Simulated assay, not measured.
Amino acid sequence: MNQNNVSEAAKAVVRRNTEEVQGGGNWALFDELWADDFVDHTPQPGRTPDKAGALELYRVLRAAFPDFRPEIHWQAADGNLVTTYKTYHGTHSGEFFGIAPTGRKVHFETVDAMRVVDGKITEHWGVANLFSLMEQLGAGTGAA
């Protein structure tokens, strides 16, 4: 398989994860797409940097935002490393980071990189604009 084929295959795995797992709550597919020895190099607060921690985060997001929907703006790949820029959308209908449901429609951007080996996500690095999300939920920083 040449470099372009590796990149396209890796992008397809990440896209399926984004659309079907994150966007659709397909937990069986999560198990199929994620390697058992997965490592998250930038886990969210309170989450473990492993496969179980990633699944827990996905479940928390879907519980807080049942209509959670990702919008992929672009993907780029260097071999098996895929970078994705996307916006998540949802309605705050469940508790999130201690904030009671507000009913507000929210959106926040993320950029992440995922390594895909043999059709499975093995590593993740990411940055999410959680400050914007928390502001939309009414959790001001109190900073002047």
Rank of each mutant, 00 (worst) to 15 (best):
N4I: 11
L81A: 14
R15K: 08
F38L: 15
F30C: 10
F96Q: 11
E56M: 14
G103D: 11
V106I: 01
G24M: 04
G25C: 03
I121S: 12
V106A: 07
G119S: 13
D67A: 08
R62K: 08
K105S: 12
G23P: 09
A144M: 08
H92G: 08
Y85W: 12
I121A: 10
T110L: 15
P70H: 01
F131K: 02
A113C: 15
D40I: 07
E8W: 02
I99N: 07
G79M: 11
K120Q: 05
A64D: 10
E56K: 04
P43K: 07
V127R: 11
S132G: 07
L81E: 15
L81D: 15
G79A: 03
L55M: 12
E95N: 00
D40K: 07
I72E: 05
L57C: 09
K51H: 08
T87A: 03
N4C: 08
N129E: 09
R47Q: 09
G142P: 09
I72G: 00
D31S: 08
K120P: 13
D31E: 09
T42R: 04
T83Q: 03
P70I: 02
M134H: 05
H89R: 10
W34N: 11
V14I: 01
Y88W: 02
F30G: 07
Q22T: 02
A76S: 03
G98Y: 04
Y58M: 06
R104D: 08
A100H: 09
D78S: 02
T102H: 07
V60G: 01
T48M: 02
E8M: 04
L137F: 14
K120E: 01
E20Q: 11
A113S: 15
F68H: 06
A12S: 05
G98A: 12
R104N: 13
V106D: 13
V106W: 00
M1L: 10
